[in-house]
Computed example of a mutant assay.
Amino acid sequence: MTEPALGTAMLTGGALANGPRLLAPGALANSGVAAPNSGPPVLVIEQPGAGAPPFVIDATPRMPSVVCRARVTGIVPDPTPTTAFDWLIEIIEPQRRGTCASAGVLCGYQEYGRAVVGGSWQPGLAEIRGGEARIRASATVGGTRVEAETRVTIIGTNPSRAAVRALCGGAATDIARIACHESGMEQFGGNGFPKLGPGGDTGIMQLCNPAASCDERWNWKANVDRGIALFNQHKGAARQHLNAHTIDGKWPNDKGMTKEQMLQREAIKRFNGGQYWTWDATNSMWLAQPPGDYTDKVLAASCP
């Protein structure tokens, strides 16, 4: 078969973003030669077989062990032990439509094993990726090129809420409350694919704009880390917003809230979009005028 460019990459708009990378876990060996009176060679992928249950990314997160095994049939004696096989695993996450930037990200992974002798191969799976996986093997046997292909699914496992709370810095933190409200602290839906909101918001933190990367779609820790970073950015912007109008070093407001309470509400609202406080120049005070009740829902969220 003719091989495409080799590599591991995030695909955006269907194009490989990174340069090629070749993995060669095996050594070259002579291909099998048909014995007299043998029939035409046929290549069969015995493992994973058709209809195999999904492979599962665990809650660590860590990629599953995918052991591949092929065999040449129709030849006597069996040439499989001395045949050099070329392998490919290609993982693609089906794309979903939505209004979020995250919905426009197409994630994939490719890994090749070249001239792997003996019919067995285990890809390294160096990146946390899931989706529909195509596994292909090919070899030249007695001058005949033979190929076989099988398809499996790789899905994700949700971490425990305790693990999510710990990464957020504790249950009482604003980021933990956001994670609770946004997704129930779940990275994956019932089908084991990234949990998506109506617009394509992704994972525990329901990342929307900027787009969730492929790591942030399949690695729950990366998703939470990005959420924390975004919240801290919004908190800095919230402080700058409120510092635009101070009186005696304070932020006068119509709710009698402390500066800490005001900053908390402004930062939470900005995580979702918009602002919580509006300056009233006539009365020289900040007015609580958030569009919607997102902030209240976050502050009331509880995921024991």
Rank of each mutant, 00 (worst) to 15 (best):
A9R: 03
G256T: 05
K250M: 10
S38N: 14
W279K: 07
P79G: 00
E182Q: 13
W121A: 03
P40Y: 14
A101G: 08
G203S: 08
L6V: 06
T12F: 15
E186F: 11
G131P: 01
G142R: 11
G203N: 02
K221L: 12
G32E: 11
K269C: 07
I75Y: 02
A103G: 05
N283K: 03
S102K: 00
R129G: 00
D174Q: 14
A50C: 04
F271Y: 15
D293R: 05
A17T: 14
G13W: 12
F85V: 08
W218T: 03
I135M: 13
R270W: 00
K297E: 06
A24N: 15
A5E: 15
L11N: 13
A238T: 05
P61S: 04
F188I: 08
A101D: 06
E147T: 13
G7F: 12
P48S: 05
V72M: 00
Q275L: 15
E266H: 10
L88P: 00
Q187F: 14
A172N: 12
V164K: 01
P54V: 04
H181E: 08
T144L: 09
V56P: 01
C107H: 05
P94A: 07
D280G: 09
Q47H: 12
G197Q: 07
N223A: 12
D293Q: 11
G98M: 03
I92L: 09
D225Q: 07
M205G: 02
P290H: 08
A281L: 07
G256W: 07
T258A: 11
C180Y: 04
A70V: 08
I91Q: 02
G51E: 10
H245N: 12
L23V: 14
H234R: 14
H241R: 08
